[in-house]
Structure formats: C-alpha cells, structure tokens
Nucleic acid binder design. Structure first.
Lengths: 268, 268
DNA sequence: CAACGATGCACGCTATGCGTACTTTTCGAA
DNA sequence: TTCGAAAAGTACGCATAGCGTGCATCGTTG
C-alpha cells in the first residue's frame, strides 16, 4: 500500500484524484500518463483510472499521449464566489477604487499562512508575477497579509510566527519574527498597513481591513502601485483615506455598524 | 449501492468527492452535513468522510454544524492558468484594450457547449450577472461563443446545434438553429462577431478569434459595452479594428504567422 | 423533561479500487 | 522496412478501502 497510508474517515481516492489534477502545473503543462505517475508517486493504472474519471467529469482532455487541463478547472472557483456574498458585493467598490486611484485594487483573504486574492481589478502590469484571483502570496511580506494577521488574534499571530519561515524575498523583507510582531502592532494601532518592496522590488501596496457584521476582519482591501509612481508619503495621505472609506462601504454592506469594531478586536 | 453505478476504469469516490465540493453553491452557502447528503443523494456517513477529507486538504471548513468552502478552492484554477502560456501573455493586451476602449475586455475559450471566461479586465458594471474568470455562459447568445463556434468546424457546429436548446434569454436571442448557422457563416466571412442584447438586455459585445501556431482558433477576444454607450454602428468601425489588431498581437506571440490561417480554417 | 432532529461513531460486509503481470501500440533508429 | 525499446492499454485476482445500517450522543425546542 501507498506510503501516505490510510486513516479513519479519510477517502484515499479523493486525495489521489486531487493529486493528479494538481500535478498539472507550470513544469507539467502537457504531461503523459507516465510522467503524472512519477510526479504523484502513484502506479500507472491508478493514475489512468483517475485521469479517465477526471476526463469524464470534463476537467482533463487528452491529445494523443498527452493530457492537459480544460477551462472547466477555472469554473470550480465559481462555487466559492457564489457562496460568498462579499465578493459580488465588493466588485463595484473595487472598480471605483481602481478608477479613482488609477492603480490596481485587490481584495484578499487569509488561508492558512498565505494570502489569497479573492477579487481584483488590475490596471497596470507592475508585478513580475501575474496576480489573478486565486493567486497565493506569503502573508508576512504583503500589506494585505499584515492586515489580516494583525487582526487574527494574538494566539494566531504567535502560531503563525512559529510555523512560518520569514524568507527574504527582497533585501527589504522583514525577516525577524519580533520585528514583524511590532509591525503588526503598529498596523492595529494605525488601522492600515503599508508595505514597500518586501515581496517584490519596486512594488508598494497599502491595505486596510474589511469587517463583517460581527466586527471580525474577514478580508483586506488593498491598492498597489510601482515605487516610481508616487512617493510613499503621498500614498499614505491620499490613498489611505480613500481605502478606509471604501472598506467602510463594503463593511457596511456586510452589516458592520461603526460601533462594534473596537469591542471585537480582542486586543484592547 | 448508489444508482450512478460502477464502471470499468472509473473511480467512484473521486466523482463523489467533487459532487460534495460542487454542492456548495448560491443555494447552499453554508450547508449542514445532512443538507449536503440530501443534495448529492449520498449517505450521511459517506458525505462525512468526503467532507473530512476535503477539510484535511483545506478546501472546506466547519463552523459548528455548518460547512463552507475556503478560498483555497479559488486557487485550484491557478493550475489551469499556469499550464496555459496564452493567459499570462495576453494580460497586457487585455489591459491595453480596456484602457483604449474604456470598456471591459475579455478572453474566453470553448468548453463543451459553453463559453468560459479565462481572462478579463473589468471596467464598468454592465451585466447584472457578475462576470469573473471561470464564469460560464451559453455559446449561442454571446459574441465570443459565436466566434469560437464559427471556427470549430462544420461537424462541431452540427453537433452543437443538435445537442443545444437555444433558449430565448432575451426577446432578441436567436433561437432558430438555421438562423444561427447563417450567422456563424457570416462571422467566418467577416472575421468577427457582434451580438446585441441576446444574452442580456442592453449588453453589446464584439469578438474576434485568437489563433495559435497551427492557425487553429483557440480563444475569442471581446470588448463589451452597454447599449446606451455607443451606437452599434460606431462599435463596428472603431472597436473591431482595434480588436483585430490586439488579437493579431496575441496570436503572433503564440507563433501564428499571418500566412497559415486560411489553410487551417477547414472551410474554404 | 420529553421528544425530536441532528451529528457522530462502531462495525461487519463487499464491491471498489488496487498493483502485478502481460499484451498491444507507438515511435525512432538502423 | 524491420527491429527494438518505451510507453500505453488490458486483464485479473486480491485486499482493503469505502460502504451503509444501526445505534449512541448531543442539543434544541415545545
């Protein structure tokens, strides 16, 4: 039997099916069956069964001996979007924000120790990596990640700092856990986060929290620009106010009244 | 045993796992285990096992008795994006197109009988439905669908017309198979498609084909606007030329030389 | 406090999914 | 064209993964 082993209340075949689907990646654009078997560590007949199943469901297709993903894979995410009222609701706010600032606007949530973009209006190509909905970035080096961590609660922060290696992604990246902890405290105090070139050189972004009815921070709203465009001083004064107003609008639609936030922060 | 039954080379548990994941939708935002069991037709213990598996993989989470999807579901689509060079490559073209026209720009592919948005730059909220990457719309009532069908080959068109019910989505929707066939012929001849209010009242869009190295049409590029904004006459003259130039740019990056397209259309 | 409705859990059965071994096909080199 | 190697496809028997029934447990409501 496979090394990953069997456990109670765990469906092995489902995990294996996902392993095959997710094996398709930048380094495996159109793999053969055997290549997938090697990458996933499964036997060839097993991979074949899973591939044929995925094919019948419409997620993969084969051209001769090579297999590839179909655009239906993109549609899986629709089910997430459809279950979160916030996403559709925030779309006009993001559009307005992008228009007023002339910069890309993003909404993101925390998933494990990473930040996931859940809605986005791109404006200019500033990052070398292609940021789209579903993109994951490390929380510690982004303004949205700082915001989400800052209000995630003290024990969550401690756990995060224990689990996560703060790799220097640029020379500016904060890599000291204690330094990061201080930064998060500052974010909580001032109510927003600015990160300058810690994820990627020349990329500046500012983020603010979005709250739901209970006052809990459920997302981060951000505006990003390239370093040359604006001095960071100016970003602070002009953009932060606009971000805070936009986030207040989204939060209000989620049922957040201005009263409840202090009580629910759990810090003060 | 379940009615769907067992077949050779088909992994039942994988299909069932997807059924549970996809059961989360607008009408099932935060279901209980029992609700999921009812919707999927599976036994409660089976759903529980599948849910626990999905939870361990990070795709679902439970708050008390209720379950919900996590943003990780959105990240599945990244694997599709990562395997298709066209998507990242076309991003700057879409941004430029949106900026020059002041309208939303989209790239879509055909998946079965539906069109899937695979890249998009939104500008204004013109449609009542929220169009995002991964959104599916019927091919027959959209300009992108018409383009993709037009160059899909005669037997594909025939099969499409046999399989698909052309439901009237607005009073303007073309619902006659023969009429649609004629429209597709026109699209092939003129090299672009315009659809006015057939998917949704007040929505006009124009689309052109994008070709790969072999000359095959692999995607459709479109610009959409609301009916009030521009008379459709003006859309034709100004936007179509810009679309054709943009599509030529993307096609060229895919290795398409201007020579090969006629030979590969398979019609003339 | 009872009764209902829901989830969680235990357990024994069997069909499902497994991998080994073999055949067929494909493709490239001689 | 022939040969040979590498990969995909197939068959098959075994084991176990996954199944559903049935019961215990929890919590909510009347």
């Amino acid at each position: 039997m496979s090394a990953s082993g069997s456990e109670r209340d765990f469906v092995q075949s489902l995990e294996r099916g996902f392993a095959v689907l997710l094996a398709f990646d930048a380094d495996m654009v159109e793999p053969t069956l055997a290549e997938l078997a090697t990458k996933t560590g499964l036997s060839r007949p097993a991979v074949r069964r899973l591939l044929l199943t995925l094919q019948r469901m419409g997620y993969v297709a084969n051209h001769g001996p090579r297999w590839s993903l179909t655009p239906r894979v993109l549609s899986i995410g629709q089910h997430y979007t459809a279950t979160k009222a916030m996403l559709e609701l925030s779309q006009p706010y993001l559009l307005a924000l992008a228009e007023e600032t002339g910069e890309s606007a993003s909404l993101a949530e925390l998933d494990g120790s990473e930040v996931v973009y859940v809605a986005r209006v791109p404006v200019r190509r500033i990052m070398s990596i292609n940021v789209a909905v579903g993109t994951r970035v490390p929380a510690y080096a982004t303004s949205m990640g700082r915001v989400l961590l800052a209000w995630a609660g003290p024990e969550r922060i401690t756990r995060y700092l224990e689990e996560t290696v703060l790799r220097p992604l640029t020379p500016l990246t904060v890599t000291s856990p204690e330094e990061l902890r201080l930064r998060l405290a500052t974010v909580r105090e001032q109510g927003w986060a600015l990160v300058d070139g810690e994820l990627e050189g020349g990329l500046i972004s500012v983020a603010v929290p979005v709250r739901d009815q209970s006052g809990a921070v459920v997302a981060a709203l951000a505006s990003s620009t390239s370093a040359g465009r604006l001095p960071s001083q100016e970003l602070e004064t002009s953009t932060v106010q606009l971000l805070l107003r936009t986030a207040a609008g989204i939060s209000a639609e989620l049922g957040h009244g201005p009263r409840s936030e202090v009580a629910r922060d759990g810090f003060f």
